[in-house]
C-alpha cells in the first residue's frame, strides 16, 4: 500500500524534485502524512539527513587524525566503561559478603549462578574449568549491550570486529581444546555413528561446513541484533526530530523498540554465552550427539 502510494506521489511533478534531494526512499512516508512537506523539504535542503549508521562510526577520542592500532577511540572508551561497570558490579557488589545479600550482590550472585549452572548443565563438571573465561565473556557482552542502551553511548557489541574476535576466540579455543583432549577422536564430532553408513560422509561434510560457519553466525547474530535495534531507534528518532511536537508515533515507536532492545540485550548475551558453552561441550564430549 505504502509503496503504491509513494509511487503515485512520486509521479506528481510538484513533489518529485523535492523528495529526490533528501530522504532515502525507505524513510519517505512520515512527512507526507502530516502534510508538512514544504517545511520538511526546507529542512532537508538545509542538509538534513537520516544517518542511522552514523552512531557506529569509530572516532578517535582526542582530536582527529588517523586511527592507529593504539589510538584511543570511542570504542576504547566504552570497552573500558564496560569493564569498569562489570567489575564494579561483581567486585564492589559482593564487597559486603553479606549472608543476606544486597541488591548489587544479588545481581552479582545471580549472574555467577546463571553462568555456572549453564555450564554445569550443558558441559558437565569438566566444563567448569573454563567458567572464568565464559563468565568474563557473558559479563562483558551483557554489560556492553546494556551500556549501549544509554543515550549517547557507543555499543561496542554492535561491531563485527568485537563480536567477531570473541567468536573466533571461542572457535579456536574450542577446536584446540577438542584436539588436545581427544586427539583425532575429536573428529568423531563430524562422524555421526547413529546415521546409516552411506550417509555418513555426506553428513560429515555438512557437519564440517556447519562447524566452520559457527564463528560467522555466532558473531553476526550478536552484532546484527545490537546494530539493527540501535539503527531502528535512530531512524525513529530522526523522524521525531523532523516532525517536532507532532511526533507521537515515532516517540511511541522508540519506546517500544527500546523496550524490545532491553530484552534483546540480555537474550543476545545469553545466546552468545550458551552457544559458547554448547561448542565447549562439543569439544569436551565429541562422541555424544
Amino acid at each position: 500500500m505504502r509503496h503504491a502510494a509513494g509511487k503515485k506521489r512520486a509521479a506528481g511533478p510538484a513533489r518529485d524534485g523535492k523528495w529526490e534531494g533528501g530522504l532515502a526512499p525507505a524513510t519517505g512516508f512520515g512527512p507526507q502524512r502530516t502534510g508538512r512537506g514544504a517545511e520538511v523539504a526546507e529542512e532537508m535542503s538545509g542538509g538534513f539527513e537520516i544517518e542511522p549508521m552514523e552512531q557506529f562510526v569509530v572516532r578517535p577520542l582526542f582530536g582527529g587524525g588517523e586511527i592507529h592500532w593504539y589510538t584511543p577511540t570511542n570504542v576504547t572508551l566504552w570497552l573500558f566503561v564496560g569493564v569498569v561497570v562489570a567489575s564494579a558490579l561483581l567486585v564492589l557488589g559482593a564487597r559486603g559478603r553479606a549472608v543476606v545479600p544486597t541488591k548489587a550482590q544479588s545481581i552479582a550472585e545471580l549472574s555467577y549462578g546463571f553462568v555456572h549452572k549453564m555450564i554445569e548443565d550443558i558441559a558437565g563438571k569438566e566444563g567448569l574449568r573454563y567458567f572464568p573465561y565464559i563468565f568474563t565473556v557473558f559479563m562483558f557482552i551483557v554489560t556492553a549491550n546494556y551500556l549501549g542502551l544509554v543515550p549517547y553511548a557507543f555499543t561496542t557489541t554492535s561491531h563485527l570486529a568485537v563480536t567477531g574476535f570473541l567468536a573466533v576466540t571461542v572457535f579456536l579455543s574450542v577446536t584446540v581444546i577438542g584436539f588436545v583432549r581427544h586427539g583425532l577422536g575429536f573428529l568423531k564430532l563430524f562422524w555421526i555413528d547413529s546415521a546409516p553408513l552411506a550417509l555418513r560422509p555426506i553428513l560429515a561434510l555438512i557437519e564440517l561446513i556447519s562447524y566452520f560457519v559457527r564463528p560467522v553466525s555466532h558473531s553476526i547474530r550478536l552484532m546484527g541484533n545490537m546494530m539493527a535495534g540501535h539503527a531502528v531507534i535512530q531512524v525513529f528518532a530522526a523522524f521525531a526530530g523532523i516532525l517536532g511536537l507532532g511526533a507521537i508515533f515515532p516517540i511511541v515507536a522508540i519506546g517500544a523498540v527500546y523496550g524490545l532492545e532491553v530484552i534483546v540485550a540480555f537474550i543476545q548475551a545469553y545466546v552468545f554465552t550458551i552457544l559458547t558453552v554448547i561448542y565447549l561441550n562439543d569439544a569436551l564430549h565429541p562422541g555424544a550427539h
Partner: peptide, 19 residues
C-alpha cells in the same frame, strides 16, 4: 586492528578482575 587491540586489553583486564 584498533578495536581488536583494545578489546583484547579490555578482556584481559576483565578476565583478571573476574577470575
Amino acid at each position: 586492528a584498533n578495536q581488536i587491540f583494545w578489546l583484547v586489553v579490555a578482556l584481559v583486564v576483565l578476565y583478571f578482575v573476574i577470575s
